[in-house]
C-alpha cells in the first residue's frame, strides 16, 4: 500500500533534527533506517504529519571504546555493527546479535538507535542493554536501559527527543545469543543471551514480555554455584509472556528455560 501523505525534511546534525521536530509539532517523527517505520506507514498504522530524516546526521555513526565502555552512535547500521572489529573485540555479543537482525537488506539500512526507539518486544539489542545495564544517551539526558523501555513500543523518549548513543560496558568474555525462530530472517520467537562478566553471569531474554527481561533469578543461582541446568530452570520465573500465532505463553516459558541452558552451555 501507499503511505498517507507527509512533509519531509533532512537534518544534518542532532541540533537540526531536534529543531525540525519541534517546529513540525507533535505528529512529526524521525525516520532513521526506515526498516520498522516504512512497513507501518505502508499499512497506514502510522500516519505522521512530517518525517525528519536523520540519515545525514553523520555525527551519530560511530563505535568508540572509552575506558571500560563502548559508546555506539544511534545511526550505526546493523551491518556495520556486525562487521566492526571494535565491537568484535570489546562486546562480541553485540556483533553476534547484529549479524542476526532481519536479513542482509534490513541490516544494510536499519540502525541501532531505531531499534531502541521502536522498542519492539522482539528487538534483540534491548535484551543486551537491559542485562548489561547500558545507558541510552539522548540529545538532553542519560537514561538507564531498565527505565528506558516502559512497555510494548513505548519508551521514556519525549516526542521531540532523539536517541543519540547507547553506552554498553565492555564484555569480551564468554557469551552467546540464541535466537529461536522458524525462518532465518525472522524476529525471535524467544531469545536468550548470556554474558560472563568479571562479577559473574548476566542473562537476558527477548520476547517473553512487553519489554526485554533480565533473568535475575538465573544470575543469582549461578552466583550461588548452581549448575547450568538448575540455574536455567529459573529462567521462566515471574514471566508473563505473550501468546500469539507463533507460540503460546507456555511454550515461550519452556523456550526461555531451554534456550538459557543451551546458551550457558555454548557460551564461548
Amino acid at each position: 500500500m501507499i503511505p498517507a501523505a507527509f512533509q519531509y525534511s533532512k537534518a544534518g546534525s542532532v541540533r537540526e533534527a531536534v529543531a525540525q521536530l519541534r517546529e513540525a509539532g507533535p505528529e512529526a517523527k524521525v525516520i532513521a533506517g526506515g526498516q520498522s517505520l516504512i512497513p507501518l506507514l505502508r499499512l497506514r498504522l502510522s500516519q505522521p504529519s512530517h518525517l525528519v530524516d536523520v540519515n545525514g546526521v553523520r555525527e551519530l555513526d560511530y563505535v568508540h571504546p572509552e575506558g571500560d565502555h563502548l559508546r555506539v552512535g544511534a545511526m550505526t547500521r546493523h551491518s556495520t555493527l556486525a562487521r566492526s572489529e571494535l565491537v568484535q573485540r570489546h562486546l562480541p555479543l553485540l556483533a553476534e546479535m547484529a549479524a542476526q537482525v532481519g536479513d542482509p537488506q534490513i541490516r544494510a539500512r536499519g540502525t541501532l538507535g531505531g531499534v531502541f526507539a521502536h522498542a519492539d518486544a522482539a528487538g534483540d539489542y534491548p535484551t543486551l542493554a537491559v542485562m548489561l545495564d547500558a545507558t541510552i544517551v539522548t540529545d538532553r539526558r542519560r537514561v538507564a536501559a531498565r527505565d528506558f523501555f516502559q512497555h510494548l513500543f513505548t519508551t521514556a523518549l519525549a516526542e521531540d527527543e532523539l536517541v543519540c548513543e547507547v553506552v554498553f560496558p565492555m564484555a569480551p568474555g564468554p557469551h552467546r545469543y540464541i535466537k529461536f525462530r522458524r525462518r532465518l530472517y525472522d524476529w525471535a520467537i524467544v531469545g536468550a543471551a548470556v554474558q560472563k562478566m568479571d562479577s559473574g553471569w548476566r542473562v537476558g531474554l527477548t520476547h517473553v514480555g512487553p519489554t526485554a527481561v533480565r533473568a535475575a533469578a538465573v544470575e543469582s543461582r549461578l552466583q550461588a554455584g548452581a549448575s547450568f541446568t538448575e540455574a536455567a530452570s529459573a529462567a521462566a520465573d515471574g514471566l508473563e509472556p505473550p501468546s500469539d500465532v507463533r507460540a503460546s505463553a507456555d511454550y515461550r516459558r519452556h523456550l526461555a528455560q531451554v534456550l538459557t541452558r543451551r546458551a550457558l552451555e555454548q557460551a564461548a
Binding site: Y8, I31, G34, Q35, I38, P39, R42, L51, D53, S79, P104, Q105, I106, A108, R109
Partner: peptide, 9 residues
C-alpha cells in the same frame, strides 16, 4: 549494498 526498495522513500 542490497536493499529492499519497497522499504525506502
Amino acid at each position: 549494498a542490497a536493499v529492499k526498495s519497497c522499504n525506502m522513500l
